[in-house]
Simulated scan of single mutants.
Amino acid sequence: MITTSAKPLVSIITPVHNDGKYIGATANSILQQSLADYEWILIDDGSNGETAEVLARLAASDARIRIITNPTAYGPARARNIGIAAARGDFVAFLDADDIWDTSKLEQQVGFMRDHALDFSYHDYIPFEDGSGRPISRIRGPKRLTLFTHNARRGVGCLAVMLKRNIAGNGVFPAMPPGLVAEDFAAWAILIKGGLRGERLPKALAWYRVRKRSFSSNKVRSARSVWFIMRKLEGFGKITATFFLASFFCTTMASRLVARVSAPVQTLTSPPWH
């Protein structure tokens, strides 16, 4: 059994809500990391008994795994903040309970941040279809994250972000009004406005599982959420917010169009999709 130090290098934060079906593949990608000096904090966010049993078995199998149990479902943003507050590592990374990392992700990203003296970083990732495992596209963020690049295009997924622990405090994800999402989009905007420096590691080091949902309702909710963030949290006027929102969705649709006519370049070892 691998043991963890009192102060691991990296704290991995994973909110879990009834994800027992997928957590095995996620666990494999973490437990096989080439950088082994980490703790994995799983926040059981009001899951059912079956998922709780899966998490208990994981924790019993490896001393680096810690379970925090919420009495009810708080949602992924608050659950991540709870994980951050409990984190002991020098760096904090995020992975949802149905997504997958390349086995060299932690080693490469920690090295990148140290080499470039960064407060936070992000890398490319590949969405794939739940069930078939088919890669959909390759998501690339901007080279450097500024208020302009962050608001004008997509590309900084939570599963790709790593932060220095000392800038994360007791949490970086703001509370959103009921029905709104995109707390991670808001979190990165808040960090940028605070003067922190983030850059892209230009490698695809994660896979994002795309489950079947209502496309139209998700897009409407996403648009309402991003509009709220731009107007209320970032303080943009209506004209500026409209420009950024239009640019954001144009780049999103353009990337999907490109993905339809050309399959993504898959340079990583085929992951355990299921």
Score class of each variant (00 low, 15 high):
residue 1 M to V: 10
residue 4 T to F: 07
residue 5 S to P: 08
residue 5 S to Q: 11
residue 6 A to M: 11
residue 9 L to M: 13
residue 9 L to G: 00
residue 10 V to F: 03
residue 11 S to C: 09
residue 12 I to F: 01
residue 19 D to L: 06
residue 26 T to L: 05
residue 29 S to F: 02
residue 37 D to L: 02
residue 38 Y to G: 01
residue 40 W to I: 04
residue 42 L to R: 02
residue 43 I to G: 00
residue 43 I to M: 05
residue 57 R to F: 00
residue 71 P to Q: 13
residue 75 G to M: 10
residue 83 G to W: 07
residue 88 R to F: 05
residue 88 R to L: 09
residue 89 G to E: 05
residue 89 G to C: 05
residue 92 V to T: 10
residue 93 A to P: 02
residue 94 F to R: 02
residue 100 I to E: 04
residue 103 T to V: 15
residue 110 V to S: 00
residue 114 R to C: 08
residue 115 D to Y: 08
residue 119 D to G: 07
residue 120 F to C: 05
residue 124 D to C: 15
residue 125 Y to S: 11
residue 125 Y to I: 07
residue 127 P to E: 03
residue 130 D to H: 13
residue 136 I to H: 08
residue 139 I to W: 00
residue 143 K to Q: 13
residue 147 L to W: 02
residue 147 L to K: 08
residue 148 F to T: 06
residue 154 R to F: 12
residue 157 G to I: 01
residue 160 A to I: 01
residue 163 L to R: 01
residue 179 G to D: 06
residue 180 L to S: 07
residue 181 V to I: 14
residue 181 V to R: 09
residue 184 D to M: 06
residue 185 F to H: 10
residue 192 I to N: 03
residue 198 G to R: 12
residue 201 L to G: 00
residue 204 A to D: 08
residue 213 R to P: 00
residue 219 K to Y: 12
residue 227 W to H: 10
residue 229 I to S: 04
residue 234 E to L: 07
residue 237 G to F: 09
residue 239 I to S: 09
residue 249 F to C: 07
residue 261 V to S: 14
residue 262 S to L: 10
residue 262 S to E: 14
residue 263 A to C: 10
residue 263 A to G: 13
residue 264 P to Q: 07
residue 268 L to M: 15
